[in-house]
Amino acid sequence: MKDTLGTVAVGLLFGFCLHRIGFGSWDEVHKMFTFASLRLLLGFGGAVALLALGFALIAKLQHPKWAPRPIHKGTIPGGILFGVGWALCGACPSIALVQLGDGQWLSLLSLAGIVLGNALYAPIHARWLRFDSGTCAND
């Protein structure tokens, strides 16, 4: 129960923050990718820097068992497909939900695409690819 409530609380906070940051705006994402505005790019970089400090501290205090994230055959092609898709629809996975909350109902199509693309990958991977893609779901 605590886990469920905590998950909902983090989701609410995350959705609120993403909307205020501007990640739910196709225009802002486009300006980030074309360097027309450095706000999101540097904001993201700043977050990574803060997290590097935070996670280093957590690693020292808690000694957590974090799954390593090695390079595999899907790292580059998967990343490229994701990047092209993100630039087109303006949504990385959580952003489609932010856009829906913002009232962008057309983003239902992006969300449907994300769910379908994710589901389609599994049988294609099992049939033809068969490398360890190390999904975050195991963390």
Binding site: H72, G74, L81, F82, G85, C89, I114, G117, Y121
Partner: peptide
């Protein structure tokens, strides 16, 4: 654009094993 982009995002993030948050 939205559905096609979404397909690429869903497929690509799973293939790469993570997205903007996890990776």
């Amino acid at each position: 654009v939205l559905f096609g982009g979404g397909l690429l995002v869903g497929f690509g993030t799973r293939m790469a094993g993570g997205c903007t948050s996890g990776h």
